[in-house]
Design a protein around this nucleic acid. Structure first.
Lengths: 169, 169
DNA sequence: TATTGTTATACTCTATAACTATA
DNA sequence: TATAGTTATAGAGTATAACAATA
C-alpha cells in the first residue's frame, strides 16, 4: 500500500449498517482467499509430483475411497459437473490410471475403478495430501480441528439452504 | 450415488497413513467447496441486483473502505492480480462509478476513488453484503464467530508461510 | 534499470447447450 | 420422455509476457 496501514473511511459514515465493510474481515472474501491459497498450494504439490490437476485428484480420491462407481457418482460425491468429470476421466483413462467397465444392466453408464497403476499413484498421493493437511493444521489443537469442522459444517448447510428453491438442474 | 451411503474402501488398506482419504472430510476440499458456494451465492445476489462481478465488487469495497488509492494498492489489499484490477477498474470507470486522477508526483500511477454514483451504489451493496454474511452466520453464536475468525487467521498465516521461499513475483 | 499500468494471450475450472446411445 | 455421458463452446478468474510511459 502507499502508506500502510491505510486509515479507513469509517468516520465518513454513521450508523452500523452503512459503515464500510472491511474486505479483509468479510467472511465470504476471507473464505475465498484462504480456500484458493490452500487449493493452489496443494495442487502445486501433487501437480509437480504426479502431473495431475485438481479435477483429476478428485476423481482418484473418489475412486480410492469407494472402489468402483459411475461417472455420475463421482460428480455427485465430488460436486463436479458431469462435463468436468467426463474430461478428467478421459485423461486418467488415457494414462491407464483408471479403467471403465460397461454396466451390462444399463449400457448408458460404466463402472470406473483404479488400475494397479492408478492404485499405486493413489497410494503415493494420499500421504502427500495428508501431510499437506497436517502441515496446514499445525497450529490447531485437536479440539480446534473438531470445532473448525463443526463450524464449516454449519456454514455449508446454511449456504446450501440458500439455493434450494432456485437452481435444481 | 447408486446406493448411498457408499461403503468406503478403508478395509482394503492397513495402517493410518495409507488409509483412503475421505474427500468430504478433507480440509482443503471442504474449504474450497464452502468458499465457492458462498462466493457464488453472494456474487449472484449483487450481480443480479447491481450488475457487478466479483473483481468489481472488490474494487468498490476497497475504494469504499479507503477512499482514494492507486490500482496497485487495490491489488495489494484485495489480493487481485494487476491485470484483473486494470480490467475491473476500466469497466467501473466506463460506468462512471469510479474516477481516475493522475498523481502529479508520479505520472505512472493514478488515484482512484468512487464517484457520487459509485458511492450511492456502494451504499446499496454494503447492506446486501452484510445481510448475506449475517444470514450465512445465522447458526453461529458471537463466540463461534470469534473462534472461526481466529482459526481462519491461523490457517491463512500458515498457508502463506508455505509459498514464501518460492514465488516472489 | 525498475515500476505502474495496459493489452494480448493462455490456462484452469465451471457451466450451458446440443448431441449419442441407451432406458 | 428421461438419463448417462460426450463434445463444442463460452464464461469467470487467474496468470505470464510484452509493452508504453514514467521514474
Amino acid at each position: 500500500m502507499t502508506s500502510p496501514p491505510l486509515p479507513d473511511n469509517a468516520h465518513e459514515q454513521d450508523g452500523c449498517d452503512n459503515a464500510p465493510i472491511r474486505l479483509e474481515e468479510f467472511l465470504p472474501y476471507r473464505l475465498n482467499q484462504l480456500a484458493s491459497e490452500v487449493s493452489q498450494s496443494l495442487a502445486q504439490a501433487y501437480g509437480e509430483a504426479f502431473g495431475i490437476s485438481v479435477p483429476e485428484w478428485r476423481i482418484l480420491a473418489t475412486l480410492g475411497q469407494f472402489g468402483m462407481v459411475t461417472a455420475r457418482d463421482i460428480g455427485t460425491h465430488s460436486r463436479m459437473h458431469k462435463t468436468m468429470v467426463s474430461r478428467a476421466v478421459a485423461t486418467l483413462e488415457g494414462r491407464d490410471l483408471i479403467i471403465r467397465q460397461a454396466n451390462q444392466a444399463d449400457l448408458r453408464e460404466a463402472f470406473l475403478s483404479l488400475t494397479p497403476e492408478g492404485k499405486a499413484l493413489y497410494r503415493k498421493i494420499v500421504p502427500l495430501a495428508r501431510g499437506f493437511a497436517a502441515d496446514l493444521c499445525q497450529d490447531l489443537s485437536p479440539e480446534d480441528l473438531v470445532r473448525l469442522n463443526i463450524l464449516l459444517d454449519r456454514l455449508s448447510e446454511r449456504v446450501r439452504s440458500f439455493g434450494q428453491q432456485s437452481s435444481q438442474a
